[in-house]
Simulated scan of single mutants.
Amino acid sequence: MKRPALALALALGAALAPAAHAIEYNQVQADKSRIGFGYKQMGVAMDGKFKKFASQLSFDPAQPANAKATIDVDLASIDTGTAEADSEVAGKQWFNTKAFPTARFVSTAVKSLGANRYEVAGTLTIKGKTHNVVVPATFTPQGNTGVFDGSLTIRRGDFTIGEGPWAAFDIVANDIQIKFRIAASGK
């Protein structure tokens, strides 16, 4: 009689106890990660990506409030699909990459929404202008690897992306959707 009761107590204790070893995802896998964007030019949907970025990450799904993320994007690594457009967008009227070589996102808070969905609050700095943003993201654990997917719409006018004749939004729309996938391993 005592043995089944002891086995049941041990099984219940193991099921109810918090995980002894949670995984902290903190090694970004650049080759499996990407940052892209979408926008409309003359009403036509366009997209592109950034070929170079660095990110630091610390995320434990059991303690999302303690998560931290920093992403630095090399703006000169833009790939719009044509070399001519890449050169134009890196220039002074758009990103002005000589004066502002990187865009930076730094998280300030992470809130779990349940079902592997999160809101990541932080600051986004482009061309020396910093704005608070909230980024919806999902997290998909795959063993010792996890993948963060999300998107955020910004207004290019808020960051002075497109000056002079490009400041108007009749040719290139004001809304730019940033899309990302960050893969990270942990232990």
Score class of each variant (00 low, 15 high):
19 A>Y: 05
147 V>N: 04
130 T>S: 08
123 T>N: 06
115 A>M: 10
81 G>V: 12
33 S>W: 01
71 I>H: 05
126 I>E: 04
50 F>P: 05
69 A>V: 06
34 R>W: 15
163 E>Q: 15
84 E>N: 05
152 L>S: 03
101 P>Q: 13
76 A>D: 05
47 D>I: 10
44 V>L: 07
128 G>L: 04
79 D>P: 04
70 T>P: 06
155 R>S: 14
159 F>G: 00
34 R>M: 14
129 K>R: 08
145 T>F: 03
100 F>R: 03
149 D>W: 01
92 K>Y: 03
6 L>M: 14
107 S>A: 10
61 P>Q: 08
22 A>T: 14
8 L>F: 12
142 Q>A: 15
175 D>W: 08
143 G>W: 14
125 T>W: 06
81 G>L: 14
156 R>L: 07
141 P>V: 01
8 L>V: 15
97 T>Y: 00
117 R>Q: 03
71 I>L: 11
35 I>Q: 03
85 A>S: 05
165 P>F: 13
90 A>R: 13
107 S>V: 11
58 S>H: 08
187 K>D: 12
101 P>W: 01
173 A>L: 12
35 I>D: 05
86 D>N: 15
105 F>M: 05
163 E>L: 12
69 A>M: 09
84 E>M: 08
163 E>W: 09
104 R>F: 01
175 D>L: 03
60 D>K: 12
52 K>C: 12
41 Q>W: 11
161 I>W: 07
156 R>M: 09
171 I>Q: 14
114 G>N: 03
180 F>P: 00
139 F>A: 08
45 A>Q: 15
184 A>D: 11
92 K>A: 13
51 K>T: 04
164 G>E: 12
84 E>Y: 11
48 G>P: 02
30 A>V: 10
35 I>F: 01
51 K>Y: 02
99 A>F: 04
7 A>D: 13
174 N>S: 06
138 T>C: 09
110 V>H: 04
183 A>W: 03
130 T>I: 11
44 V>I: 14
168 A>D: 15
159 F>A: 02
46 M>G: 09
145 T>A: 10
77 S>N: 00
153 T>G: 06
182 I>H: 00
85 A>V: 10
92 K>P: 04
180 F>G: 02
83 A>Y: 09
153 T>I: 14
166 W>C: 00
140 T>V: 09
105 F>D: 00
186 G>H: 08
140 T>W: 02
51 K>E: 10
115 A>D: 14
186 G>P: 08
91 G>D: 12
140 T>Y: 03
91 G>L: 06
123 T>P: 01
5 A>H: 04
112 S>N: 11
47 D>H: 15
154 I>A: 12
99 A>N: 15
178 I>V: 15
65 A>I: 07
78 I>W: 00
104 R>V: 14
177 Q>T: 15
13 G>A: 13
186 G>R: 06
165 P>C: 01
105 F>G: 09
58 S>R: 03
154 I>H: 02
